[in-house]
């Protein structure tokens, strides 16, 4: 549905803007999380077809009807695993933030100047 994919793109833009302009590491990771949700919305909305139902065979949807009445199952499957991986990646980023705070005693990326060009 176009509305949801536009919403997803706006969330991607907001998350990217937050990642680029904030100074606090935790806020950067929050921006990453928002961007993640936006990407999931876009991918699922690409597989949706108006008026169709979930691809699960039961009394309401017989196996013969599935090609004409079910939505695309592949984007759902991809997003399903991507959400779990996204949580693991977020936890990894947060553990990097904790480690940086332990070493440098700051979360402000302007104070972490070893790799500054």
């Amino acid at each position: 549905m176009t509305l949801v994919s536009i919403l997803g793109f706006v969330l991607i833009a907001v998350g990217l803007w937050g990642m680029l302009t904030r100074r606090n590491l935790i806020k950067i990771i929050v921006g990453f999380s928002i961007m993640d949700t936006g990407v999931h919305l876009v991918i699922v909305s690409l597989g949706f077809i108006k008026g169709r139902t979930a691809p699960i065979i039961n009394k309401a949807l017989s196996a013969g009807d599935a090609p004409s009445r079910a939505v695309d199952p592949i984007p759902s499957a991809l997003v399903l695993t991507a959400i779990v991986i996204g949580l693991a990646v977020t936890a990894l980023l947060l553990s990097f933030a904790v480690r940086i705070y332990r070493e440098k005693r700051t979360l402000n990326i302007d104070d972490i100047s070893e790799l500054k060009w």
Partner: peptide, 18 residues
């Protein structure tokens, strides 16, 4: 929104994780 988009599996995961 995932429920509206006919993806209940994704909705369950997102509700628990997101």
């Amino acid at each position: 929104i995932f429920i509206v988009l006919a993806a209940p599996d994704v909705a369950m995961t997102e509700a628990a994780i997101g």
